[in-house]
Nucleic acid binder design. Structure first.
Lengths: 135, 135
DNA sequence: TTTAATTTTGTAATGATTACAAATTTTACA
DNA sequence: TGTAAAATTTGTAATCATTACAAAATTAAA
């Protein structure tokens, strides 16, 4: 039971159950943009009764409290990101890996009457590793 | 049978079947970011035997030939866009509608050894229509 | 404690997408 | 033009991610 995660949850008014603390701690130590399945695979050995429904519920709760972010870069699987600082993402179309990259500076679009409260920037291409394999 | 669409397909080396021409023509006249279901709903009265599988296959083919673009803004449904010119998108979190907006100018990120060949920019917020309803 | 509220769990349902094989249509060319 | 081969479409079934839901377990409150 990670005390740091428990405190962060309590500070948000979220009661720190074993599952929530474990998932929060996982997200704070794995900035690998995991999917629900990956989290389940890694945590179920530690919490044998853990169910995927709990992971879905918990991540939705964390999203509402802005403790995590979600991204769907390829139209099928939702990835979660424990890094909620502003940054962009790059996905390699060869190996599928998602990399964090700095958020490019942009002017805020002028949309009269629209309220903007979020932005996601995705880049696509081939990563260095896969580039090297090509040769 | 739209001649213009048939020609565009032929120019790409795609044989212009009735279904492909109809779907292409639909995308060139409905810049509403339709889903497969919406396309199916609108075209099946015209082509009664049309199947969703064909729509999926055709859109995948069009994606490969860069005749359309796809976007998954909310993690669940894939929307297709007949406008392949560079532009960004805004989705209203209230009504779900997707708006085209100009692509903001950005510096290209410096990623040594990475090959970038695509970029997607999504904004989220509340659109003018829903803003007015709030009052 | 006892009760109420919250949280988790497992199963079933849903919804989008893909696999696949049969049927149909199109294309190539004799 | 006729025929065979290739390409395309179709419908159904399967898959995969996600959600619904109600029962069980846990936690909090009185």
């Amino acid at each position: 039971m990670n005390t740091k995660s428990a405190e962060i949850l309590r500070a948000k008014g979220i009661s720190p159950s074993v599952q929530r603390v474990a998932i929060h701690d996982y997200m704070m130590t794995h900035f690998t943009h995991p999917t629900v399945d990956e989290i389940y695979r890694d945590l179920s050995p530690i919490i044998p009764t853990l169910s995927k429904t709990t992971i879905y519920n918990t991540l939705t709760l964390f999203l509402e409290h802005e403790l995590v972010d979600s991204l769907t870069m390829d139209g099928s699987i939702t990835h979660y990101d424990g890094n909620v600082q502003s940054h962009a993402h790059f996905q390699c179309s060869q190996c599928g890996e998602i990399y964090d990259i700095p958020m490019p500076k942009t002017e805020v679009p002028q949309l009269d009457g629209f309220e903007i409260n979020g932005m996601k920037v995705f880049y696509y291409g081939i990563c260095e590793k896969c580039k090297k394999k090509e040769i």
